[in-house]
Design a protein around this nucleic acid. Structure first.
Lengths: 152, 152
DNA sequence: TAATATAGTTAGGCAAGCCTAACTTTGCAA
DNA sequence: TTGCAAAGTTAGGCTTGCCTAACTATATTA
């Protein structure tokens, strides 16, 4: 078995990677620009340059000063993991918990870096359970909505 | 209305505050020792000293070099909030999601700093919902356990 | 009560991550 | 094609938060 160097990224680097991934978009045709990364993450362009250098060192992005920014296959895999965690969390917060979309988005942005696969996977199962399970023709998700709308 | 200076703590300071709170225990009779804080948080004693100074500046703990460490009322309020978030999250992860206790504990430790009241409150409601709602004499929590035990 | 072990502090250093200001490169328009 | 604006980089500085090593205070015990 080949040596598997587990890519351990900081929350900050995960954010950069995810932002690049989203900017490049499905298919990987588009290119990420430093300015846009800075805008999305609300940091300075100087900070982006620094992060890009680190990500390039880790072979997660292809980066040459003043050049295009693309992702390596390894980078895409990592980015997709983060993006997926984000997606699941955001969906859980909005669709199940009924949290305000803005708050849900923010919460997902933070939580995606700290909740591991075990939690995420089980959360996804919970979502399936609540959506699929019918009671009197209503999903449990709907039942829960009724529950917290009366309570809260 | 009096000016309400919102205490904004870093994740690290919240951890220290929570650790002190837990060491002091219910009733607030016990005293927190620097060594024990270091042990709980797995940091050096020097780091604890630094954190204590910061917390004292913010009037959250009573701290004099070589003296006892106790909490101010303000500190106790803040600490309790963090501890409560932790408790709810840990309970959700273990009791509802069925996550391994160690992983749940770790996840709660991290997530407690990033999930706001809106999410926590609704999570608590979800837990109530799942526990109270009976179907064929079984709680939904039990139903969900059966669901993921078959699936996973 | 004096020696020593334990607890706690100080000093100094390092990494991550952010910033602003100044500089360089690139690309578009006249 | 040249010149300027926009994009990107570099340099340097700041904060947080951690560390180790060395020092000081406290407490125990002989």
């Amino acid at each position: 078995m080949a040596i598997k160097t587990k890519t351990k990224l900081t929350a900050s680097l995960e954010d950069y990677l995810e932002a690049i991934f989203n900017l490049i978009g499905p298919g990987g045709f588009k290119v990420a620009r430093s300015k846009d990364i800075a805008e999305v993450l609300e940091v300075s362009q100087a900070s982006v340059t620094g992060a890009l250098r680190t990500l390039a060192e880790k072979k997660l992005v292809n980066y040459k000063p003043y050049g295009f920014i693309t992702m390596t296959p390894k980078g895409a895999v990592e980015a997709e993991k983060v993006a997926k965690r984000h997606e699941i969390l955001e969906s859980f917060f909005t669709d199940i918990l009924g949290i305000d979309p803005n708050i849900a988005q923010q919460a997902a942005c933070k939580a995606e870096h700290v909740l591991g696969q075990a939690v995420i996977v089980r959360l996804l199962e919970l979502m399936d359970f609540l959506r699929d399970y019918e009671k009197d023709g209503r999903s449990l998700t709907d039942e829960f909505r009724a529950f917290y709308e009366i309570k809260g």
